[in-house]
Design a protein around this nucleic acid. Structure first.
Lengths: 147, 147
DNA sequence: AAGATAAATGCAACATTGTTGCATTTTGGG
DNA sequence: CCCAAAATGCAACAATGTTGCATTTATCTT
């Protein structure tokens, strides 16, 4: 919340509530899920307010919206260089955020080759996290056993 | 449409219409825009049908959905190796599709380092195309002249 | 070329996402 | 404590997306 203060934005009840929701979520959450989660704890926020808060958070890089699912997550990298990227497990929804400046340079160079001035990279790697991978291996083995 | 045939899907009126809409569009289009464009030419398609056709096209890689805007475009790369990526002009919406296997390897390696088995990369570079860039330069110069 | 049939569409109903304008409330500085 | 700017709540609307089911249609078979 210091970030808000420092950049001239007010610290309000809705902003605190949304930030806390994002912190408590183990995976990307939709605006509607945020509203439901809050109301199940007796709180209430207007839908429009939630959109506005999320927009602000994304502009300030306090949160990100995942390209493919559209869900929102709290940013875990702060001011780390390079654009912020994600790996997401298509099975369980677990995710990790990372940044890599070399990758950004590479992508920008490719854009230059296509006559574009790159400004920002949105990217998300979809795959399987190690725990889902292990579960799947077990399932496959037991299926074989039954043949 | 041979692709549909070859993969065991039927060639139908809605599928032909949506494909043509995508071909005629100079930029990513939304399902709603597709429906409007068709109806302005006297055609009609159910909204649900449009979603289903687009889903199918995306599964078959005949079309893609751009991560940030959610708009759809016809695939221009066919079976080219590596996942398909986009550069998009944030000013005019112009875009180019490309693929780069080295970039995919790099991203997959990073995912491995985070304990994920990468399967697919979604990525979009946002920036300014060369013609918008030139327009902007001219505008800046004339603004200076007026001071 | 007609008929069977599996596939695809159209329709109805519903839930979520997203946008705008305006009146009211609240935050933070003086 | 008061005030002005900022932010919220509310109303109304438009687009996105999903499901189930009855009807139509594309393709295969004969």
């Amino acid at each position: 919340m210091q970030t808000l203060q420092a950049r001239g934005y007010r610290v309000t009840r809705p902003r605190r509530m949304v930030l806390q929701s994002l912190e408590e979520a183990a995976r990307p959450v939709s605006p509607h899920e945020i509203q439901s989660a809050l109301s199940s704890k007796g709180g209430y926020l207007d839908r429009v307010t939630i959109y506005r808060v999320l927009d602000l958070f994304c502009r300030l890089n306090l949160a990100h919206r995942l390209p493919s699912s559209g869900g929102f997550v709290k940013c875990s990298l702060g001011e780390k260089g390079g654009c912020h990227r994600f790996v997401v497990c298509r099975q369980c929804g677990a995710f990790q955020e990372f940044a890599d400046e070399a990758l950004c340079r590479e992508e920008s160079k490719l854009a230059t080759g296509l006559d574009f001035h790159a400004e920002r990279h949105f990217s998300e790697t979809s795959g399987i996290c190690s725990s889902c991978y292990e579960l799947r291996q077990k399932a496959l083995l037991s299926a074989e056993g039954q043949v």
